Each structure stands twice: as structure tokens, then as C-alpha cells.
Amino acid sequence: MPAPINTLKQRLAREEVLHGIWLGLADPYAAEIAATAGFDWLLIDGEHAPNDIRSISAQLAVIAGKGPAPVVRLRNDDPAGIKQALDIGAQTLLIPMIEDAGQAERALRATRYPPEGIRGVGSALARASGFAAIPDYLTTANDQISLILQVESRAGMAALDDILAVEGVDGVFIGPSDLAADMGFLGQAGHPEVKAAVLDGLRRIRAAGRAAGVLVIDPAFLAECRAAGANFLGVGIDVTLYAQALRRLASEVGRQIGAI
């Protein structure tokens, strides 16, 4: 019996357009609710959200079988962190702050068992192998791991073509907020120069035959990104959606009560 099929990897390879949201509440119950909403994928954020390996593991468990594919963003490209995320059952990883082809190659090798890579062998005690219930896991796991690299700096954008030349990388995700900051436009992800850089990057990614990802909240710019070829679309963040809904309700009810 082989490793579980990574349906997200398959769908991206077919060039389907998929949309999802960031999970930053770091709570399994909230993740389970999001898993019923109809998104194609849900990203468990281990970079900026208060997640640790246990909370990520718990969210993977409640998302499983609900429909959306789970994606785990780690805090960096540390091979030990990558190994642990894969062992708890993540099959699609988003690795932030990639700035050159060498870094991309190291991240890729960290996701693969030897001889293709350096992933440590500990699957017998891991969810990834069904706790040793999948006899062919070690020999089939490599093919089901999907690696998406996040480029979000001027250095990364300058090296984008070299990063895209690394075989085995499934996609590249552009981070507009960090890119804006690095370009001198802190807090201005919608600045025209930032938008132009993002759109140029998305076109280059798709021209290389890779999945092109971006997180965009503005509907107008989302349409531009889609026209540029983006097919791995982040369209929201649970934290901000929750906060906005609460503030809107508080404001609306406050006005209503005040008018009585």
C-alpha cells in the first residue's frame, strides 16, 4: 500500500485554479469550521500565527477528510522543522523567504527521503505512515510531497528564474506584504510598483509551468492576479475575517441600540 495521494499536488499539476484561506487562529475547532466552508485548500500558518507542532498536528487531524487540502507554512526552511511537519502528516508545505536557487534546492531535499534528499526516517511512529500501517510509505512518499516556495523580497524576485529552474518544486507563492516592505513601501502592498512586481512574477511562474500563488484580499487586484496566471489563490485570513465580523456586528448593534 502506497502513501496517500496528494490531491492538491494533482490538481495543481492539472493547472486548476484553486482558492483557499490562511488559518491563523491556531485552533482546531476554528480549523474544522473553515474546513466546511467550501475552500479548495486551507493553510495552517506556522510562521506568523501562534502555532506549534502540536497545534498544527491537531488542525491537520480535523481537516482530514473534510474536502479542503491542508497546507502547512513553516517558519523557515530548517530541515528539522520540515521533517517534523511531514511526519505529522503534512503533504504540502509552503516555505517562506526563499531568495535563491541554492536555498530552494536545500528545501526540496529536506522534503525527500534518500537518495533524492535528506529527510530523516522516522515514519514508523508518525501519522504520515498511518503509524506504520502503510508498508510502502518510505518508497512512495517522495512522489506525494508538494513543495511551494514563497518569494517575498527583491533578492528572491531577482533570482526567480533560477528558483523556477529547480526541478521538483511544484509552485512559487509571492508574498506582497513582505515584498512591499523590502521595496520600501512598508504597509503598502497595493502600491503600483509592488503590484507590477507581483504581476510580473506571477506571469514568469506560470510561463515556467509551475503553480503561481499569491495572497490577495482586494477583489480588483485578485482579478488582475488571476489574469496574470495565478492559480493558487489565497483570498482571506480567518483572523481578519473573524475580527471584521465582530467589529461590524458591534458597530451595527451599537447604532441600533442607540437609536431606540
Score class of each variant (00 low, 15 high):
R11L: 01
A189L: 09
R248I: 04
L186Q: 12
A124R: 11
L43M: 15
A212R: 01
G236F: 02
L147R: 02
L160M: 04
A211H: 10
K195I: 12
A69M: 04
A132C: 11
V239A: 14
R127P: 08
P114E: 12
D45M: 09
E32K: 12
D45H: 10
L93Y: 00
P68D: 12
A30Q: 13
M183C: 04
S251P: 00
S251Q: 14
G236D: 08
Q244N: 14
I21E: 04
A245E: 11
M97Q: 15
D52K: 11
I21Q: 09
A124P: 00
I88D: 03
D78H: 04
E167R: 06
I260F: 14
L147T: 11
N51L: 08
W41H: 07
R109K: 15
L125T: 12
K9N: 01
L74D: 01
I33A: 12
R248N: 11
A207K: 12
R119A: 12
V253A: 15
V216A: 09
I205H: 01
Q244L: 12
R14S: 13
L164C: 10
D200S: 15
D100K: 06
P50N: 11
V172Q: 00
E16A: 12
A132D: 15
G236N: 09
A250G: 06
R204T: 08
V17S: 14
P2D: 04
P70V: 03
G201Q: 10
E252G: 02
D238N: 11
V253W: 13
L12S: 04
A37W: 08
P114M: 07
A230M: 07
V253P: 06
L86R: 00
D27L: 05
I118F: 06
D170S: 09
G190S: 13
E99S: 11
L222Y: 10
A69P: 00
D27E: 15
R73F: 04
S177H: 07
D87K: 01
G20M: 08
V121M: 13
S146V: 00
R248S: 12
L215M: 14
C225I: 08
A181V: 08
T140L: 06
D170F: 01
A110N: 10
R127A: 13
A101R: 12
V151E: 05
T36V: 08
L12D: 01
G187L: 09
R127H: 14
R203N: 02
Q103P: 03
R75Q: 10
L199M: 14
R204C: 05
S129T: 10
G46Y: 07
R248V: 04
A180S: 14
M1S: 11
F173V: 03
M183T: 06
R11Q: 15
L74P: 01
R255N: 15
A26F: 03
R210G: 06
G258I: 03
L179P: 03
A58W: 01
E193D: 15
R154P: 02
